[in-house]
Design a protein around this nucleic acid. Structure first.
Lengths: 320, 320
DNA sequence: CTGAAAGCGCTAACAC
DNA sequence: GTGTTAGCGCTTTCAG
């Protein structure tokens, strides 16, 4: 910038004015500055600007894994919203590891992001207190965090309840539930929805038909249930990875899965699902964040997004 | 930092030393500083540090779309490598728009990233010249850029050739090619591979069996070919989105697709593919970039990654 | 072992 | 319309 000023024969401030499109610069002078900028390949340093101005025009996003289609959908939506607000997105994958989540968030904070969107891997977010107090807003997405901040989650229990009720409507009385580890918020909520559906139908919950744990073990859990003396006639799976694991066993039980996935419609039969809206989740969280960044005070908001049941065949089969 | 120094009764430099783990600080003093840091919730400002130090410990990645599984795989791999080098990843989606690509790259440059990985949407990268000359290394990934910089691409032609040859081996003589718009580098390369396979087998290339264009039109193209007087007996699809579009038509022609995809093994028959390795692409590009960042001079490197044919049933069917 | 001063690139607040 | 000065938070340099 100094070089540009020297080359154009003006003061630094004038270059600054031209770069920022401020008015009050003689057209001829401005042109001289612009040509110097062009000639020298000058580009404004955003970090220096942020240092002075207080705003970095960037937001941080912590998800579980970019390579997971659900989160990459979230990511894309956040990116689009950020773009609209002239902000850059820093993002990172926690891999469901609370330590890594914390590390990422703190890294973003060191970068002085204007705000944070976090899909919590851990339950404790006290480490965020200083930043929140310092005025950096944070939004928890997909799961609630350990702090009373803005939160956007899906109607996990309601969605699961609707999915299971759908199966019951076709005459099933023994519906199994295979879900992710119960320590994960969404998994626990979905299990709660399953129990509610049974209760509403006046059916007892048979614990031998409930399995929770890492998706890789879902296939084995299903096999165990099917060889027991009173096997299930239908299945509800608690997330996309569990659904895939079950499908890979080759067992084709009447079923509804939580989470939609590419090609669900091309399998035979098509896989009925309770679909979430990853883009909607990301967009909602991002819009909320930018409202906060722009100074919206008010108490923490808690948004719950609806799910949608998509019948494709596998969930519309009666018991044998 | 000033506050910490005041609170601990030391000078700024001492705080700086403690924060950076520099040796030569009295243990007692250091402890006093650390407790002040804790008490005040102090966190070093990375942008200020970068301003002074010259390095920002961040790299930029421009892909086409994070929500595309291929690119999210690339993204994840780059993120992991960056993490290993203590660097943060800034990433953005160009949506195949050269203007947007340029804008993203320039934004990253204003952020003074230490290096760039770019999946080129456009063909002209002269706008990068100033940065390259200023010493910011760039690596082109998946497609060559308009500049002689480091490049990591897949063996598109070789992979397509292998896939088509595979079909020919089962007795097909009329193999169709449906691919993405020929203006896209990878699409053109794969078409070249298709032609090479036919040539090597001594077969003429029937232009009525070749269709290129946006994936949404792939289904219609196939329908047209199949109702013509001399329809193809097998099909080679030029990328994952085309493969999906074709599968959705319900037509089940013997086929091999470029790009692997989730559930390809669960369709009936399983879809044979020529698989690329997105993680390998990202990892290779990132490793190369960090070598450059660490000062490796030497001429631009051009790496070509192999593809892998995965037979699953659809490509091992003879003509009717 | 510790500290004071200068300056990274930029802009806000005032001159002129 | 244009220029000067100070300072954002940090590290580097040099002096105690």
């Amino acid at each position: 910038m100094k070089d540009v000023a020297a080359s154009a024969g003006v003061a630094l401030k004038t270059v600054s004015r031209v770069v920022n499109g401020e008015r009050g610069v003689n057209a001829v002078t401005a042109e001289r500055v612009r040509s110097a900028i062009e000639r020298l390949g000058y580009r404004r340093d955003e970090s220096a600007r942020g240092l002075r101005g207080g705003r970095t025009s960037s937001v941080g996003l912590v998800i579980e894994d970019v390579a997971d289609p659900f989160y990459s959908g979230v990511s894309r939506a956040v990116e689009d919203v950020a773009l609209g607000y002239g902000s850059l997105l820093l993002s990172g994958s926690s891999g469901e590891d609370p330590r890594r989540e914390r590390e990422l968030v703190l890294t973003f904070c060191s970068r002085r992001v204007d705000g944070l969107i976090i899909v919590p891997a851990g339950a404790d977010h006290e480490y965020l207190r200083p930043e929140l107090d310092a005025g950096t807003p944070a939004v928890f997405a997909d799961r609630p965090g350990g702090l009373d901040a803005d939160t956007v989650i899906c109607d996990n229990a309601g969605g699961a309840c609707a999915g299971v009720t759908h199966l019951l409507r076709y005459g099933h009385r023994r519906v199994a539930f295979i879900g992710d580890s119960a320590s994960i918020f969404t998994a626990a909520e979905r299990l709660r929805g399953y129990r509610r559906a049974l209760a509403e139908a006046g059916l007892p919950a048979d614990e031998s038909l409930i399995a929770t744990g890492p998706p890789e073990r879902a296939g084995a859990a299903l096999a165990r249930m099917l060889t027991a003396q009173a096997p299930p006639t239908a299945l509800f799976t608690g997330n996309g990875r569990v659904t895939l694991a079950v499908l890979r066993t080759g067992q084709r039980l009447p079923m509804v899965g939580f989470d939609d996935f590419e090609l669900a419609d091309l399998l035979v039969p098509g896989v009925s699902v309770v679909a979430q809206d990853p883009a909607g989740l990301g967009r909602t969280a991002a819009e909320l964040l930018f409202r906060r960044i722009q100074g919206d005070p008010g108490p923490a908001e808690h948004v719950e997004l609806p799910t949608r049941l998509i019948p494709r065949g596998s969930g519309e089969l009666p018991p044998p």
